[in-house]
Design a protein around this nucleic acid. Structure first.
Length: 538
RNA sequence: GCGGGAGUAGCUCAGUGGUAGAGCGUCACCUUGCCAAGGUGAAUGUCGUGGGUUCAAAUCCCAUCUCCCGCUCCA
């Protein structure tokens, strides 16, 4: 991963200090010395994070007819992790070179040197790895390794009162599998049909070797993800007679029936990028990174990382993977429960073909599959199912880290300005330039002076009239300028001040966080202004 | 987990064996007619934690936890 420095000037230390000082983020269990890789969100952080989740949920399901939500458990049947491959691939055997102190994946360096790592399974089912003789450290050439130790990234626990291997369970290392294993239930109950998606927001856990970069890599984190299920390209071809080709001119604004996985994937990449921009992340700080073929997971056809220029480097916010039918197929096989769907349109399209056309189609698919290194027999089985109107859907997965996005919003928002006061003395103004949509507090309401009961009463009245709809904040302590600055530092986009003129004509001064400009606004107009700020109209 | 650096008030830090400090912030009261004004007062630390050396430890020694940088991994 690149270490390109971000255009942002804020250091992680400065940002973390502000987050703690103002109550965005605290270290978990701090009074007991903290616990590595776990973070708590304070009052403002909790609001910020809720806003992010809310905006995502609204965009991904409420405002779409083809996506529904799910809220699944963190602990699930352990067989799920066997089927998904996490039990095997999440336990990396690691060694350290005692000579040069470098660390390696034992299986990888053994394989590179033409050897195979020895695995011994003990009676209690535990795996013991042994480095074969003759393997040398790729860095210094020494063969002086520590013992091979497995690092399983899944947190394990036991279900029920007795701890034994029979009731071992895991905290989910990703939310995706929960969606796959409920795919059929959702399909049967939601009156959706392919193509459609299931989205979920929830916690996931990884026992990371080294949590790092503030909240960026945590052991407990939250994901927002969509699994969008589509027809296999072969089914699209049978129904539409062709599969649309992705070109630079392809209109991605509305889905079309002739889209194959490639256009659907591109569609979601564009959708997600547009969403990040809509919540205030500038286009320039977002990077669309297309993984090279050799970086892809074995089941993935394509994967795009949406990256953000963090102060510590350009790092991933979201991955959008075309996962083929891999996951549902795994569960189809391991659970013994069919994950196939029946597609009326497909069945109707196939009914119009004669036997010769079907044979020709199946032969073409077999040839394509063979060219891609898959067996032609499997292709014929697949086509026989297709002709019956059945297939296992393919999947496009846009999967984002909530905590990472919150960190991106915080680091993007942070801004220090040099401004001169009326005496010409220069001072620094710290401003969190959150987009109003995500800002923890939308509006601060101040009486100009707190020792004038009539001003206080009016300001309280405005506060009480708005707070059921927006997170607004009332503050009467300190000089007015000081109160403005306090709000700047927590990113409140607007402030209104009740002064003596308010008592005469029901107007207040409306102060903009970014420009510091003030204008006279009727109290009756405040709700409209807040609503416009939230919908992006200004 | 390994190597390097660091932990003192909410924050930034001073304090190198002899009674725990500063600035900012926070809170209260006064003051204040629009951008961190001023005044008075207050709260907040068993100096990361545990042990040891010493008449005496924030300071020296050991262990441990946490944070930062690198290896590894990823949403």
């Amino acid at each position: 991963m690149s270490n390109t420095s971000s255009p942002s000037t804020v250091s992680m230390e400065t940002l973390a200090a502000l987050c703690k000082r103002r109550g965005f983020i605290f270290q978990s269990s701090e009074i007991y010395g903290g616990i590595n890789g776990f973070w708590d969100y304070g009052p403002l952080g909790a609001e910020l994070k809720r806003n992010v989740r809310g905006l995502w949920w609204r965009e991904m399901t409420r405002e779409r007819e083809d996506v529904v939500g799910l809220d699944a458990t963190i602990i699930m049947h352990p067989s799920i992790w066997k089927a998904s491959g996490h039990l095997d691939t999440f336990a990396d055997p690691m060694v350290d070179c005692k000579s040069c102190k470098s660390r390696w994946r034992a299986d990888q360096i053994a394989e590179e040197q033409g050897k195979k790592i020895e695995i011994e399974i003990t009676e209690d089912g535990k795996k013991h790895y042994k480095m074969p003789a003759g393997v040398k450290c790729p860095k210094c050439g020494s063969a002086n390794f520590t013992e091979v130790r497995p690092f399983n990234l899944m947190f394990a626990t036991h279900v029920g009162p007795i701890e034994s291997d029979d009731n071992k369970a895991y905290l989910r290392p990703e939310t995706a599998q929960a969606i796959f294993v409920q795919f059929k239930n959702v399909l049967d109950t939601s009156r959706q049909k392919v193509p459609f998606g299931i989205c979920q927001i929830g916690k996931a856990f990884r026992n990371e070797v080294t949590p790092r970069n503030y909240t960026f890599r945590s052991r407990e984190f939250e994901q927002m993800e969509l699994q969008f299920f589509i027809r296999p390209d072969e089914a699209v071809e049978l129904i539409c007679g062709h599969v649309a080709q992705l070109t630079p001119d392809t209109d991605l604004s509305e889905p079309h029936a002739d889209w194959g996985w490639e256009i659907w994937h591109k569609y979601w990449v564009e959708k997600r990028l547009a969403w990040y921009r809509s919540i205030g992340l500038p286009k320039a700080s977002l990077v669309e990174y297309w993984q090279a073929k050799d970086e892809l997971a074995h089941y993935a056809r394509a994967c795009v990382d949406i990256q953000f220029a963090f102060p510590f480097g350009i790092q991933e916010l979201e991955g959008i993977a075309a996962r083929s039918d891999y996951d549902l197929t795994q569960h189809h096989i391991h659970s013994g429960k069919s994950q196939e769907v029946f597609d009326d349109e497909l069945k109707a399209a196939v009914a119009k073909l004669d036997d010769a056309a079907r044979t020709a189609f199946a032969d073409k698919v077999a040839a394509d599959w063979q060219a891609a290194g898959k067996s032609p027999e499997a292709a014929h089985t697949f086509c026989a199912k297709l002709f019956d109107g059945r297939y296992i859907p393919h999947d496009i997965e846009p999967s984002a880290g909530v905590d990472r996005l919150v960190l991106a919003l915080l680091s993007d928002a942070y801004c220090e300005e040099k401004i001169a006061d009326d005496k010409g003395k220069e001072e620094t103004r710290v401003v969190m330039r959150f987009n109003p949509k995500v800002a923890p507090i939308k509006l601060a309401i101040f009486p100009l002076l707190k020792n004038r009961p009539e001003l206080v009463a009016k300001a309280r009245e405005i506060y009480l009239s708005l707070r059921s709809r927006w997170n607004v904040f009332y503050d009467e302590s300190g000089a007015i300028g000081r109160r403005y600055r306090r709000q700047d530092e927590i990113g409140t986009p607007f402030g209104v001040t009740v002064d003596f003129q308010t008592l005469e004509d029901n107007t207040v001064t409306w102060r903009d966080r970014d420009t510091m400009k003030q204008e006279r606004v009727a109290i009756s107009e405040l709700a409209t202004r807040l609503q416009n700020a939230e919908t992006g109209k200004q």
